[in-house]
Design a protein around this nucleic acid. Structure first.
Lengths: 155, 155
DNA sequence: GGTATAATGGTCAAAAATAGTCAGACAGGA
DNA sequence: TCCTGTCTGACTATTTTTGACCATTATACC
């Protein structure tokens, strides 16, 4: 029983498998899924952000539209833009979005992505502890647990 | 005398006899047993801990869930010993040794091991910086660079 | 050309749907 | 009695969904 948002995300991504862009009618889509129009905006905001590798353009008024564009870039550009996006500090959500992007671009596979998420999770990086080794221990514990979860899952 | 917790434990374990994982709704389960929701968390914490051979994942919000995963006895042993060895803090060399062990045991493949090493490297976990997000950014940068190295390398 | 109107899409805050945490009450055994 | 394991309730955190209201644009009509 995936959430509505998940279904809408899936729907849009399916439309993006061949093409690198789709054009939608917000209201039609909302009608199709039987939800509030703003639900579409929610999905676009949470699942098709720049960090996740998408651009969204739209226009209101008569024959308006919402256009979703999958961003493609060369490896060098991608790496540069990701590092820049990370910057000097980054929150957990944005970090996850970036990892997800690496996954969708096939830079990492699903297990690698999970490991990465484990490494940057709030759980792994719990502060008030002030020694480098303590942080590392925390990170590594998360990684070990995640590695086991991966193994159970199979690729 | 058969405490409520025991009944809930039994119930979940029965669901796990065939499969190695179950998905639950915390509230439904609490309703079914006519208890406080937090009772479920108590059971999960006390009877389905890592050292008892279980992993628990969950998600909040609409169509949230609690997932319980059973792992094999030998894996429990291994996981337990590794976590114990990591302890409250650990140096880089020892951390690497543990990752190497995971690799030799085929828990992770070579790329995954490299990611893990990147995550716990001295470079990734540079202190004097005192915010959680700054540490995370540092870790993630290392991970991203390593992921790209992996890709160039091929498996 | 200027306006009114219809057709779109956007924003934001509140509600709903979940799950987690923690301190303390309780109960039975050492 | 005191300790330990159970259990609860109040409060918190997260994610999704909805609704009321706002903004923009095309077009029909004068």
């Amino acid at each position: 029983m995936a959430a509505l948002s998940d279904a809408i995300e899936r729907f849009i991504k399916d439309l993006l498998t061949d093409d690198t862009r789709v054009e939608l009618k917000r209201n039609e889509l909302a009608q199709y899924f039987g939800c509030a129009n703003s639900q579409i905006n929610y999905v676009l905001a949470t699942r098709f952000s720049v960090d996740r590798g998408y651009l969204v353009e739209s226009r209101r008024g008569g024959s308006g539209y919402v256009r979703v564009i999958r961003i493609s870039a060369s490896d060098v550009e991608l790496l540069g833009s990701l590092l820049q996006r990370i910057g000097g500090e980054i929150g957990e959500e944005n970090a996850k979005a970036i990892i997800l992007r690496l996954y969708e671009l096939h830079v990492v596979d699903v297990n690698e992505a999970r490991l990465m998420q484990a490494a940057v999770s709030a759980e792994a990086i719990s502060l008030p502890i002030s020694s480098k080794d303590m942080i590392r221990a925390s990170v590594l514990k998360s990684l070990v647990v995640q590695a086991f979860k991966n193994m159970r899952e199979g690729k």
